[in-house]
Nucleic acid binder design. Sequence first.
DNA 1: CCGTATCCTCATCGATACTG
DNA 2: CAGTATCGATGAGGATACGG
Lengths: 130, 130
Amino acid sequence: MPFPVHPPTHAECTGAMRSVRDALDLLGGKWKLPIIVGLSNGPQRFKQLQREVVGITAKMLSKELKELEINGLLTRHVQADTVPVAVTYTLASYGKTLFPVIEALHQWGQQHRTHIMHPGAAAMLEEAAG
Amino acid sequence: MPFPVHPPTHAECTGAMRSVRDALDLLGGKWKLPIIVGLSNGPQRFKQLQREVVGITAKMLSKELKELEINGLLTRHVQADTVPVAVTYTLASYGKTLFPVIEALHQWGQQHRTHIMHPGAAAMLEEAAG
DNA sequence: CCGTATCCTCATCGATACTG
DNA sequence: CAGTATCGATGAGGATACGG
C-alpha cells in the first residue's frame, strides 16, 4: 500500500488520476480549506481557530486538524506547564506549498462566476471553435 | 443569488474562498474527474463513456453529465435520425480550461506521495525553518 | 481550555428494475 | 442505446453532553 495516509473515500484511480484524487481529497470536505486559510495568518490556539472558522464544531475541528497534521500540513504544539493547557496549531511550511494550488483553483473559480453569468460570449466562442 | 449553477453543498464562504469552493465542488465528488479525463481523448457516446469510467452506473453518469453540461464544461449532441438514438458528449473548449487546474493538483499530489513516504527530509527542513 | 463520546440527520452513491 | 424510478446502504457532518 503506497499511500496509507488518506482514507480512500473514492474509487481507486490509475496513473496520473491517483495523485489528482489525493490532492482533491486533501482539500475536499467542508472544513479543510477554511482551516488552512485561518492558519495562514499565523499560529492559532484551538479556541481562537474555532472562532475564526465560523460554524465549525469542536468535534469537526479536532478531527480535521488531526488529518491535516498527519499529512504534514500543520504542526501541533502543547504548552503543558499551563493550566489549562494551551495547544497551538501552526501551518507548516509544507502546508504553504498548497497555496499555488489553491490559487489555481481560485483563479478558475473566479472566472467561472463571470463565465456563468455571461454565457453568451462563451457560447459564441464555442460555436466559432466548432 | 450570484451563483445559481452549483448546489451549495458546503457552507457559504466569504471573499476569495467562495471561488475556491466553487472550483473544488465542481471537481469534487467521485466521478467528475474520471468523466472529464474520459472525454479528454475525444467525444464519446454514453455507453462508451460508461465503459471508460470503470464502475460508474448509468444513473450516476447521467446525473454527473447533466451537471457538467449545465456548467458549460461539455456539450451534448443528439443524433435523432438513427435507431436507437445516438447521444454524443464532447468536452467543450471551456472544459479544457480546467486542465491547468487539474495539472496543479496533479503536481502537488504527486510530490505529496513522495513527501509522505520520506517524511524525514521534510521534518529536518521544518526544524531548520523553525 | 481542549478535546472525546454518543446519537442523529441527511446527502451521496449503489443496485435493480424499468421505459422510449 | 440512453436513460429514469425506486429502494437501500453508507458516511460525512451536526447537536449535545461529558471528561482531562
